[in-house]
């Protein structure tokens, strides 16, 4: 077999893998731009392209005060929504997996529907409710928070439920058999085993909340979150600090995932 044939064969065998890698590269193209632009010193505010290198954006991220206040508001809302949605959603997941009662089908449907509704519909119906209930003038932090908890809830339920359903029932029975009371069983066996699912759900909630624009925009009144800030400046000229935030978000999420994976491997290695 000639080297050329051999190469052709190799390519043939790895065609799918190469295709997959190309798709991943495609997914990273805009990220590359975001990182690059975070070091950009633009000549003009209106033309959005790379002109020259600078560290200024990283050193002075809050040149535009309104961006940083929008950012901190988004983080506050994200954290609050995450806590509430994770707690409520985890309780629901336990109820749905561990308890038999009438009306489970209705509950499951109600959990599923928000995920199957377009954001624009959820956002506009919430707005309709707030206006009808006379809160049309008080749209802001709290209405955003309410909306975020609502759409995060379903994702938490689904994530935790999957983890719980995959849990071997025998483990809890084994704990009870080994003299653990119900409370001890929950603390020593159930919780540690479900915890990765809950943590994953919390991370998902935070990123959903932090990133939401469509529902937020309809129910925010005059309050500005980070995505709304970006939306606003997209028309007027984007400060490069926006890309700094984008880069940091990317790095933090990578750090969390890699950290979790390393931690898992380290544990496995230490035990091997």
């Amino acid at each position: 077999m000639s080297p050329l044939q051999r190469m052709g064969r190799w390519v043939g065998q790895h065609l799918v893998l190469m295709g997959g890698l190309l798709v991943i590269v495609y997914m990273f193209v805009p990220i590359f731009v975001v990182v690059l632009m975070s070091f950009n010193k633009p000549k003009s505010k209106l033309i959005y392209r790379f002109d020259s290198f600078t560290l200024q954006n990283w050193l002075h991220p809050c040149t535009d005060q309104s961006m940083c206040s929008a950012l901190s508001r988004s983080i506050q809302i994200g954290l609050l929504a995450t806590v509430v949605a994770t707690v409520l959603g985890t309780l629901m997941a336990f109820a749905l997996v561990r308890h038999r009662f009438e009306g489970r089908a209705v509950a499951n449907l109600l959990v599923f529907l928000p995920m199957a509704s377009p954001e624009i519909v959820m956002g506009s119906s919430l707005l309709a409710l707030f206006v009808a209930a006379g809160f049309g003038g008080q749209l802001g932090f709290w209405t955003i928070l309410i909306a975020h908890i609502m759409f995060c809830l379903s994702f938490v339920v689904v994530t935790v439920r999957a983890r719980l359903a995959g849990l071997d029932n025998n483990l809890e029975q084994a704990a009870m058999d080994l003299y653990a009371t119900e409370a001890q069983t929950f603390r020593r066996v159930t919780l540690p085993l479900v915890f990765p699912g809950i943590l994953g759900a919390a991370l998902l909630s935070f990123s959903l909340s932090f990133d939401d624009f469509i529902i937020t925009n309809l129910n925010a009144g005059n309050t500005t979150t980070f995505p709304m800030y970006v939306w606003g400046v997209a028309q007027r000229g984007v400060p490069m600090q926006v890309n700094v935030v984008g880069t940091v978000m990317f790095l933090v999420s990578i750090a969390i995932v890699v950290g979790a994976e390393l931690n898992r491997r380290r544990q496995e290695k230490a035990l091997a």
């Binding site: 071997d168 025998n170 483990l171 029975q173 084994a174 704990a175 009870m176 058999d177 080994l178 003299y179 653990a180 009371t181 066996v189 540690p192 085993l193």
Partner: peptide
């Protein structure tokens, strides 16, 4: 179960994976 002096070896062992 936790109040009886009886212990079980489970069918698929039910060892705590964590």
């Amino acid at each position: 179960p936790y109040r009886r002096p009886v212990n079980t070896v489970f069918q698929n062992y039910a060892l705590f994976p964590h």
